[in-house]
């Protein structure tokens, strides 16, 4: 068979060609990969580093780990005090629980409102599904800040809602909603509802309606059909949607800042205050690190169920 092979020169040419191909591949993968490593992963190390430094009245307002002492010695000072502070001061602990509470309750509210909506869209006649879905996504394209601002006008003591209710005669005194936890729940649910509906719709629309007919044929009533057929198959969508709401809400700043009051203490708001108002960068970084750790489990959950939903989709296709 040796007689058929090309000369050594031809072989070298081939190798060069394949190398060129792989160089192309490396560029395609490498450029976005490097960007993400530098601008997304690397910064976490700096958060960790600053969270272990001592605060200082300087620019930037923290001390380096490595510094020269007066007698010319180089010393490395790592300060765990910031984490100790978070643990000792009930302010931070209650902010963590405040965030968890707001995130959990508004995730639940999104699910309660979003599930029937997603289900209705998935069951709508085919030609209506896209427009109905577009209507859900449309608000997402308008400014987040301005949508929250809209609620300020509605929920104010002399806002639209109170004026309306007073005019109806339902209430005598204006309701105090603005600057309470209730206002935060409303705002968060409103802002994050599309993130719940989209994955729910994706799983529910993939559900074969014939399965429900089969269940009905075997004697299941509508409620039973839902509990035994629809709900179990939509669980991946429910979890993906819940995590898409839960994770970002944990660090939400704008909503508690604009709609919330003194009782709605959340991590995101506290981080902002520590950073911009108190200029305590190390404590803000420590808070960020704690938040990151708290969010790892929900993030892994999300990845797991997203990849499962993807696999299901590939099977269906």
């Amino acid at each position: 068979m040796t007689g058929y092979g090309g000369g050594a020169g031809a072989l070298a040419g081939l190798r060069a060609r394949w190398r060129r191909l792989t160089v192309g591949r490396w560029l395609v993968t490498g450029i976005p990969w490097l960007w993400l490593v530098i601008f997304f992963c690397l910064p976490f190390l700096f958060i960790l580093k600053i969270s272990l430094s001592e605060p200082a009245l300087a620019q930037p307002p923290y001390l380096n780990w490595i510094r020269e002492t007066a007698d010319g010695l180089v010393s490395i000072v790592v300060n765990f005090g910031n984490y100790g502070l978070l643990w000792d001061d009930s302010l931070y602990v209650s902010a963590l629980f405040g965030s968890l509470q707001v995130a959990a309750i508004s995730t639940l509210l999104c699910l309660l409102i979003g599930y029937p909506m997603a289900y209705a869209i998935a069951r709508a006649p085919t030609h209506l599904r896209m427009p109905l879905l577009m209507l859900v996504i449309l608000p997402f394209w308008t400014s987040f800040l301005i949508r929250i601002y809209a609620w300020m006008g509605i929920l104010n003591t002399n806002g639209i809602l109170n004026n309306f209710l007073l005019w109806l005669g339902v209430i005598e005194q204006p309701l105090e909603i603005m600057h309470t936890s209730l206002a935060v729940y409303i705002g968060v649910t409103y802002a994050y509802l599309p993130f719940m509906i989209l994955p729910l719709y994706a799983t529910l629309s993939r559900l074969d309606p014939v399965l429900l007919e089969a269940a009905a044929d075997l004697g299941a009533r509508p409620a039973k059909q839902f509990l035994t057929i629809t709900w179990p198959q939509s669980v991946p969508g429910v979890i993906a949607g819940a995590m898409l709401v839960f994770i970002p809400v944990m660090g939400e700043f704008v909503i508690p800042d604009l709609l919330g009051g003194p009782d709605s203490l959340m991590l995101g708001k506290l981080m902002w205050t520590e950073f911009f108002n108190n200029r305590d960068w190390p404590v803000a970084s420590a808070l960020a690190a704690v938040l990151l750790v708290v969010l790892i489990i929900p993030f892994l959950l999300l990845r797991h169920y997203e990849s499962r939903a993807e696999a299901n989709g590939e099977e269906a296709a």
Binding site: M1, Y4, G5, G6, L14, R17, W18, L21
Partner: peptide
Amino acid sequence: GRIFIDGKDVTDLP
């Protein structure tokens, strides 16, 4: 293994 087309080894040709 190898593939020859018209007597020419094309195994490594894209």
